[in-house]
Simulated scan of single mutants.
Amino acid sequence: MGVRNYLIDGGSGTGKTTVCDELQRRGYQAVHGDRELRGAPEPGADTSGSASDSHLPPLWDVAKVKGLLANQDEAVTFLCGGCRNSSDFIDLLDGVFVLEVDDLDTVMRRIDERVLVDPSDWGGRQEERDIIMRLHDTKEGIAQGCAIDASAPLHLVVDEILRRIH
């Protein structure tokens, strides 16, 4: 991982995966947490919910995260994705960016676009869409951090994140 490490969080449809892809395209170390870090919490960790809470962000493998954070081969690394046990490692990070999209219609359009590509993706079923809409209002399960307007064009969103770390 990096000498400096950041979490990029946000609700469904705010662009965590897309921002991660763009950071990678620009040559930054960026990890798709939802794909690469899923796992079990450390023994005794507060997971704030049970495994049946499918509407909550996934648990990340804390041991794997801590191992990555200990490696300082890169100048900067971004962990991108929702994680409900981030409190187990957040103190090891240099910062947290929270992608925000105030307009629910934009969020739902983004969900629709990704479900067209993969109908099994989160948001494809009406029950999931109902949960996304509720969580959009409550911000439940999202880490506290520096808010980034993710309704802007992708290049501006990533430029703003990079501006804030330099």
Results as ranks from 00 to 15, higher is better:
I132K: 06
F78G: 00
T18R: 13
L104I: 13
Q126S: 11
G67A: 12
L69H: 09
A75L: 09
D21Y: 00
D88I: 02
N85L: 05
C83V: 10
E128A: 06
C80N: 03
Q144R: 12
G39M: 08
S54L: 15
D130L: 11
P41V: 08
V158G: 08
E36P: 04
G33T: 09
G10N: 03
F78Y: 03
D149N: 15
S54H: 15
G39N: 10
P41A: 14
P57W: 12
T47F: 13
L93D: 10
D88L: 04
G15S: 02
V158I: 11
S54W: 15
G141T: 14
Y6M: 01
L135E: 06
N5W: 02
G123Y: 09
Q29K: 12
I111D: 01
R129C: 12
C80I: 00
L59M: 14
R164S: 03
A150T: 07
K16R: 09
T17M: 04
H155Q: 13
E42W: 03
R84G: 02
V158L: 07
D94V: 04
G145I: 01
T18Q: 06
A150G: 10
A75I: 01
G27L: 08
G95Y: 02
L37S: 05
R125I: 01
D137I: 07
G33V: 08
S87M: 00
D103A: 13
L156V: 04
N85R: 06
V107E: 10
E127S: 13
G2C: 03
L23S: 05
G123N: 10
A70I: 03
G10H: 01
L156W: 01
D149H: 05
T77W: 00
Y28I: 02
A152C: 07
N85W: 04
R26H: 06
T17K: 03
E128G: 05
M1K: 02
F97S: 08
V19E: 07
V65F: 06
V117F: 00
E36V: 13
G124I: 00
Q126R: 10
I148F: 08
G141D: 12
L93Y: 04
E160N: 13
N85I: 07
M108C: 13
P41L: 07
A63G: 14
Y6D: 03
D61L: 12
E140A: 15
T14H: 00
P41R: 10
K64G: 08
R134G: 04
G124Y: 00
T14K: 00
K64Q: 13
R110T: 13
K16T: 08
K139L: 10
G11M: 02
R84D: 02
C83S: 08
D137L: 14
R35I: 09
R109C: 06
R125Q: 10
R38I: 12
Q72V: 01
L104T: 07
C83T: 05
T47Q: 14
L135T: 06
V96F: 05
S54C: 12
A30T: 08
D121A: 12
N71L: 05
T138E: 11
D88H: 04
D137H: 13
H32F: 07
